[in-house]
Computed example of a mutant assay.
Amino acid sequence: MRTRIKICGLTRVTDALHAARCGADAIGLVFYPPSPRHVTLEQARAIGRALPAFVTRVALFVDADPAQVGTVLAGLRPDLLQFHGDESPEYCRQFGMPYIKAGRVRAGLDLVQYAALYADAQGLLLDAFVPGQAGGTGQSFDWALIPENLPLPLILSGGLEPENVRHAVQSVHPWAVDVSSGVEISKGIKDAAKVVQFIQEVSNADR
């Protein structure tokens, strides 16, 4: 099995193209204004137009007004939606689009039950719980909290970087890994060498 790779928080065409050419399966575009990795619809369109075929364009939202999501759907036509807040299952389904749901892992959260609520999602993205922050914190969580019987494909996120992703893949065996801050020079600006190294380490883990 090959572990899929999503590079998230892209703000520049050059970074997105580099990630795609290095083997990224998906790129994440953040439509959450408080985030330093937030992109405008115009930025997202430019990135989306530049990407080659078979690279999934993921639009990320955090408790967004449905009208905002509709605007992005009409203007960008992303391939997949990512909901990274406290969105209900009904909220996620209303757009008629494939989606993944994020869960911020903490002791006491029943991840099997949580995943079952979003049974029609394409995957469950697990991230670190940091009070007051929706994601992109660069912090990891205890992978031992991940149950083996999750009913959705697991997308591992939270504190991943080139130095630890091989161990993460070999320990957790996720369907995919998601990285943002772990391959950056600064928030929203990717480090080309780190992107190469990250993707290579995932490949090494698979082998």
Score class of each variant (00 low, 15 high):
1 M>G: 15
62 V>D: 01
52 P>G: 11
96 G>K: 07
85 G>Q: 14
157 S>N: 04
41 L>Q: 15
12 R>C: 07
191 D>N: 14
76 L>W: 08
102 A>V: 12
146 I>V: 12
157 S>G: 09
104 R>W: 07
102 A>G: 12
48 G>Q: 02
167 H>N: 06
171 S>D: 10
111 L>I: 09
185 I>G: 01
137 T>C: 06
143 W>E: 01
83 F>V: 11
70 G>C: 10
59 A>S: 07
195 V>D: 10
183 V>E: 05
159 G>P: 05
143 W>K: 02
121 A>M: 07
70 G>M: 11
97 M>A: 11
158 G>N: 00
117 L>I: 00
31 F>P: 02
199 I>V: 13
125 L>M: 13
128 A>I: 04
173 H>L: 05
47 I>L: 09
45 R>K: 12
107 A>W: 03
38 H>D: 13
80 L>H: 09
59 A>N: 02
94 Q>D: 05
89 P>N: 05
114 Y>T: 03
99 Y>F: 15
126 L>V: 02
86 D>M: 10
90 E>H: 12
188 G>V: 04
78 P>W: 04
13 V>W: 14
183 V>C: 04
203 S>N: 13
132 G>P: 09
37 R>T: 06
120 D>R: 03
43 Q>T: 05
13 V>R: 14
157 S>H: 02
118 Y>M: 02
183 V>R: 01
9 G>Y: 07
21 R>C: 08
206 D>M: 15
74 A>L: 12
66 P>S: 07
18 H>P: 06
148 E>F: 05
167 H>W: 04
198 F>Q: 11
39 V>I: 14
10 L>S: 08
189 I>T: 12
121 A>C: 10
2 R>Q: 12
122 Q>W: 06
175 W>G: 03
10 L>Q: 07
183 V>F: 01
119 A>Y: 15
124 L>R: 00
21 R>S: 13
168 A>F: 02
119 A>D: 15
96 G>H: 10
177 V>A: 00
43 Q>N: 10
78 P>V: 08
60 L>G: 00
65 D>W: 06
98 P>C: 12
44 A>E: 04
134 A>D: 10
24 A>R: 02
147 P>M: 13
192 A>W: 15
166 R>W: 01
137 T>I: 08
66 P>H: 07
119 A>C: 11
191 D>P: 03
155 I>W: 05
177 V>W: 00
7 I>F: 02
55 V>R: 04
64 A>E: 13
51 L>E: 03
92 C>W: 03
16 A>S: 14
55 V>M: 08
145 L>S: 13
178 D>H: 04
46 A>V: 04
